[in-house]
Structure formats: structure tokens, C-alpha cells
Write a protein that binds this DNA or RNA. Structure first.
Lengths: 269, 269
DNA sequence: CACAAAGTATCGCCCAGCGATACAATCGTA
DNA sequence: TACGATTGTATCGCTGGGCGATACTTTGTG
């Protein structure tokens, strides 16, 4: 179910503009669409599935898969039939992570923050209707998905996401909410746009955003936005704790001062 | 200097075989080479630099960059001039990480392991002359690079790498060593092939590999191999501690039983 | 066994994209 | 301020790379 959310977005089809743009290489786009086909998968994919997902025919899919395989981005699944992403992908991951100035500067600060709070600390980057985790410092108990770089959660209902929204103006916020799928992630997720705007306004005044069980039952999270040198939000720090360990007030009182100091240390890069 | 090591490999040029292979799409390969150009970078890259690294001319580079930018894989660096990898890359990272069966099964086990040992625990995947970190559970003190997914270290001098080698036969090991750049990472790195083979043999007998200060001064690491269902090594668990906290013997005695049990729990997937 | 579906390969035709070229903008330097 | 160098962007005609159709092999299923 973590994946069905993703399948809703990333339906990157070649648009009419692009088709008429002499600088836009369609074959490259098709190759990336093949790689992106796996966004919707939860196991190996056959050629036909890839072709369908990527919106190309089997023939083209086969040639692209062949190439991508030769280059080390895909491999056959030895167990079942079909194809899977392969290790070479991670090369680009490292390039991105280590060249991104926010991540560069954030990492030591986040480690320090986690050392003090002893709860999970995440760095997320703002990607329109979603925020994408780019660095994750685990605590004691974690789930599989809570450790994966690249995992994303909706902006509108995550603590960091709402902290980011609080640094945008009302029109921008409304625009993002309009384009978001306001589906609840848990029964406690706030999906009413008016209520969300209230929460965002609250975050504006307080300098942080709180989310109780909106992403994961039993979890409370506090988010603080990170801004670039033009004072635009580009990401957020998330601190997540268990409701069995913390009351809302205690969590806020403990986490906010430290997290906000950390965010200040990272911002403006 | 973490990057110069990488620049030695990944010089993936289009080979003669590939040029004659009707199924091999050169434009796709060129696009991936553009993305790979950043392996050697430590900041934004200009078109000319990208073109040079990717082995194509400025014109082609420009068109590919334009396309990749349109697709969200690259962006202009607003501060300096030039281009940088962009967030969309991480989508594929998540696909790889969450579809890889080894990582899927390893994550909870590794978290448990780190909870017990309270030192850094890494999962690496075997990639010929290198091992690539795919999951990282930090401890207290860490450096920037010690937290990044996708970072890789040489097989021949890392604890996990040598644990992997110990599951291969001598010919395979020699082959890998032959193709490795046996450059020391630290002054303590063992680079003599004979000495490495000794170490590998030792690992065969003991079931684990130790590396003292071969990757990072002041650090001791113990590696245990993970095998697939055909009993071939596909990765390793690394546990790393500080020499200011541990003697070699104490580290081995404490870590080996737990790490080896963890490896057994993960293997055969 | 037949049948379906998956993976692989070949081939001719045609248009996507290569290479050349040019232009605006931004520099560092004289 | 003028100059050359460099960077990012765009255009265009020719041509060979890759699309789509087709077919072959292999594997799994009723």
C-alpha cells in the first residue's frame, strides 16, 4: 500500500509540447519511463507489464530493457521471470546525495540532533505535493519503509510537509492542496482543506508543525522547515516519536527547541 | 578523495560490440553517460565538462541535458553556473531498494543487530571489485559519507568485501584482485595480493573477516557474507566500531556471534 | 498435449536526433 | 569600456539509428 500512493503520481507521459520540442529526445524519455515503470511494481515485471506501464509497445520495451540491462540498470529476476532494477541505479543516488548542498550540510547536524533526542530524525526534500526522505537517522524501533531513502509522504499531512507549506503564501499552499490527492493515509489523517490551512497557519505562528498519527498510527512527528538563501522552503527536518513514550506537550517541549536550532544551522545554503 | 576512487571505474564507454548490437540503443546509453558524468564531479558541472566526461560533443550534451532537465533528473545550479542531479533520481533509488529481496529481508534483522551491538551496522551489496552500501544504520559518531546509501568501498580491503571473497573460489578471488586498483585507502590498507589472499583464507576458516583501519583510521570492522539460494555471496553485513572503545579481541568476541546469526537469518533469499 | 505468454532476435523504412552553426548572456582581463 | 573566452540556448538539413511488425524459442499451465 506504500506503493499504490506512488503510482498515482509519476505518470510522466510525453506531452504534446515535448513532442514538438526539437531539444527533447524522446528515446531518452522512453528509457526513463521504462525505469519509472517499476514505481508501480511490487516485484519483478515482465516485458508486457513494463511496456504497458511505460506506454510503449513490447518491441520498444524489449530493446530499451536490453540496453538498460547491458548498462547495469536492470537485470532478470532469477527466481521468478521478469526484470528488476539493478545496482547501478545507486551510483546516481550517491551523486545526487553527495552533491546536494542541503544534505551535505544537514548530515552532521541531524546526527547531533538524533544523539540528543534519541528518536528518529529524517531530512526530507520538498517535491511539490510530496516530500521525499533523503537522509534517515533511525532510532530503536523502525519499520522497513522508515529506513529507505527515496520514500516519500504527502506534503499535506506530514509534519515536515506542513512546516514547508507554512513558509509559502496562501495561494501557493492552496495550489498544492488542489493538486494533491487528499486521501487519508491513516484514519487520523486530516484531509479537510480548511482544517489543513488552519494547521498551516498554526505552523506559521509557532515555527513548527505537529502531526499526530497522520502517517503512522502511534506516531507523533514534529517538522521544521529548511529554507534556501532566498528564504524559500526546500525541505524539512522531521523528528518522530512514539505516543507510548511521549505526550504531545512533552514531545513538543523537548523536540522543538533542538529541531529549530538544527534547522537554523542548515538553512540558507 | 572519496570521489576520485570512483572516477577510476564507471568509465562506461560504448563498446564495439554494443555499437553493432541492433538491440542496443545508443541514445539511451548516451543519456545514462550524461547522468554518470557526475560520478567524477564534486560540484555543479558545465555543459562542456559533462560533454567531455560523457565522451560526447557539447551539442549532444546540451540536448540530453535539456531532456533530462525536463524530466526532473537534472537542474541548473542557481548559485553557481552549471547543472546538478535533481530529486527525481531518488524515485529509482526507492524502486531498487524496496524491490531488492536481500534488502527487504535484511532491514529488520540489521536494526535488531544494531540495537544489540550499538555500533554502526551496514548492509553492502557485492559489485565485483567494489561493495556498495545499500542500507546504513548509524550509531553515535559518524561522518558524512558513512551515512550515504550508494557509497562504495573496494572489495579487497573492506571487511565485508573480504568476507564475500572468502565465499568464492581462489580463481574468482584472484580474478577480482587482478581487476582491482590495489591502491591503499589509508596507510594501513593491505594491498599485497598475497597478504590479501591470506586474509581471505583466514576468513574462510573463521566465517568472518576483520579489517583494522583499512578504510578509516581508528575504525575496526567485522564483515560476514550473505549468500543467495545458490550459496553464492551477494552481499555482506558490516559492523564498525571505534578502536578507542574496543580491542580487536573484544570486538570480535562481541560482534561475531550476533553478526553471523544475522547473516544466517538473511541468507538464502 | 496444445496453448498462452515471456523473452529474444531480425529487418526495412522513415523520421528522430546528430553535428554544425549561430546567438545571447555572463564572465574575467587588459 | 572593449575584448575574448565561456556558458547556456536554439535552429536546421541530412542521414543512420531506432520504430513497428514479424517471427522464433522457451517456459509454464490447463
Amino acid at each position: 500500500m506504500q506503493r499504490t500512493m506512488r503510482s498515482l503520481l509519476n505518470q510522466r507521459v510525453i506531452t504534446e509540447n515535448q513532442r514538438n520540442d526539437p531539444l527533447f529526445l524522446q528515446s531518452v524519455a522512453r528509457a526513463m519511463q521504462v525505469l519509472s515503470a517499476f514505481h508501480t511494481a511490487d516485484g519483478a515485471m515482465s516485458l508486457s507489464e513494463i511496456a504497458q506501464q511505460a506506454g510503449i509497445d513490447r518491441s520498444a520495451a524489449q530493446r530499451i530493457v536490453h540496453t538498460l540491462r547491458e548498462l547495469g540498470y536492470l537485470k532478470r529476476d532469477n527466481e521468478n521471470s521478469g526484470f528488476l532494477p539493478e545496482l547501478r541505479i545507486l551510483d546516481h543516488t550517491l551523486d545526487y546525495l553527495s552533491l546536494n548542498p542541503v544534505i551535505r550540510n544537514a548530515t552532521p547536524v541531524l546526527l547531533e540532533l538524533r544523539r540528543n533526542i534519541r528518536e528518529r530524525v529524517d531530512l526530507s526534500l520538498f517535491d511539490d505535493t510530496r516530500v521525499v526522505y533523503a537522509a534517515r537517522m533511525q532510532s530503536k524501533r523502525e519499520t522497513f519503509f522508515a529506513t529507505l531513502v527515496g520514500h516519500s509522504v504527502p506534503t499535506f499531512c506530514s509534519s515536515g510537509g506542513r512546516a514547508i507549506l507554512s513558509r509559502l503564501n496562501d495561494n501557493e499552499v492552496r495550489d498544492i492542496l488542489d493538486r494533491s490527492d487528499l486521501n487519508p493515509v491513516t484514519p487520523r489523517t486530516i484531509t479537510d482543506p480548511v482544517a489543513i490551512l488552519d494547521k498551516v497557519q498554526e505552523a506559521r505562528e509557532q515555527g513548527y508543525a505537529l502531526a499526530r498519527e497522520e502517517i503512522l498510527i502511534g506516531e507523533i512527528a514534529l517538522g521544521v522547515a529548511i529554507t534556501d538563501k532566498h528564504d524559500r522552503p526546500c525541505g524539512a527536518i522531521h523528528v518522530a516519536g512514539s505516543l507510548s513514550d511521549w505526550t504531545t506537550d512533552a514531545f513538543r517541549d523537548r523536540v522543538f527547541p533542538l529541531a529549530s536550532e538544527a534547522a537554523r544551522a542548515i538553512s540558507r545554503f
